[in-house]
């Protein structure tokens, strides 16, 4: 299957102080890199998951891909077209093909609008008023498993799970090729979480849409995604097929994340890799390998030399001087 989205060496920068202040303070580079050298691709009808702690740049990357943030370097190729150089009308066309499921379901729905107006708004924004919007609203609600009478409700009359479904319905309105779901299960109970994930899986099977999921919930990743990338300080530490990442993680950070995940069994045998210290700030990125300040296996050259990207197996890459051995998680 061909790639719907290809991102190469993407870099997103934010200015942290004005030019004048930077000059006064003697700061030569008053920017932070929120995303650095991110390269990945998403295939048609595939789910790609981005995992990382808060502040690692996951949402920034998603916004940049959607053309909602300016990029500093790199290319974003969507279905053969370059996104970073698009003009306004091309951008409008592009945004018809990608849609968002926002993190906070009720916060992303206007409290003054009824569900029917909310989920058909994309048609109005994109100048497609010619259709019967009421019929569309009911069709979309049906697709996400809500009955027609939800069309007349206001967001405050919805439960968390229902609000999330309305978010999904709105994302489906323009029949997009790619859906970006930012923390689709945040704040949901385990039973409702399953419903939403099943819905996304089913819609993907029916419509062949690609899904880009951002999450820090490791438990759901295995069940929904084909490929996974682990992000740390705006860079990809490791990426590959989800099964490979979960069964033989090679980057120490991936290992630590997976081993830290608490299991719902009081007698579980937890062999943990504890990370020391704090996440460094983006203003002063560590030298060499940026993970060395917290890595339990760091050696001398980790502090000085930037690790190269290693291809371990088919599409499984990581950046580390000393990747862990396969199936031997705790020794180098």
């Amino acid at each position: 299957m061909s790639n719907i989205l290809e991102v190469n060496n993407l870099r997103v920068r934010f200015r942290v102080m004005s030019a004048l202040k930077a000059r006064y303070k003697g700061v030569t580079d008053p920017f932070i890199d929120a995303v650095r050298d991110a390269s990945f691709s998403i295939k048609e009808a595939e789910t790609f998951t981005l995992v990382g702690e808060s502040g690692s740049g996951k949402s920034t990357l998603a916004l940049a891909v959607a053309g909602l943030l300016p990029t500093a370097e790199g290319t974003i190729n969507f279905a053969g077209k370059e996104v970073t150089t698009m003009d306004r009308s091309q951008m409008q066309e592009y945004r018809r093909n990608i849609s968002f499921i926002w993190q906070n379901p009720t916060g992303s729905l206007s409290p003054r609008q009824r569900v029917s107006a909310l989920i058909t708004e994309p048609y109005i924004v994109h100048g497609m008023r010619d259709r019967d919007l009421n019929a569309e609203a009911i069709r979309l609600l049906k697709m996400v498993g809500l009955s027609a009478h939800f069309a007349d409700r206001y967001p405050h009359q919805l439960s968390g799970g229902q609000a999330r479904r309305v978010g999904v319905a709105r994302a489906l309105a323009l029949n997009p090729k790619l859906i970006i779901a930012d923390e689709p299960t945040a704040g949901l109970d385990v039973s409702v979480q399953g419903e939403i994930l099943n819905l996304l899986n089913r819609l993907q099977d029916d419509l062949g849409v690609s899904i880009f999921v951002i999450t820090h919930n490791l438990n759901i990743v295995r069940h929904i995604s084909n490929r996974t990338a682990i992000m740390y300080l705006g860079r990809f530490a490791e990426q590959g097929f989800t099964d490979d990442i979960f069964e033989s993680p090679r980057h120490p950070y991936t290992l630590a994340l997976l081993s830290a995940n608490p299991k719902p069994n009081p007698d579980a045998d937890m062999e943990r890799i504890e990370l020391k210290g704090e996440v460094p700030g983006l203003m002063n990125r560590p030298s060499g390998c940026e993970f060395h300040t917290r890595c339990p296996f760091s050696a001398e050259n980790c502090t000085e030399v930037v690790p190269p990207q290693i291809d371990v197996s088919d599409q499984h890459t990581l950046t580390c001087h000393y990747p862990r051995q396969e199936n031997n998680t705790l020794s180098p």
């Binding site: 439960s159 979480q193 295995r222 099964d243 299991k263």
Partner: peptide, 23 residues
Amino acid sequence: MLLKCDPASISTKTRSLPTIKGE
């Protein structure tokens, strides 16, 4: 049911997670 629904306790990969029906 709550324990069964937790995706962390499902070790085999599945496209259809268990849920608790109803509200």
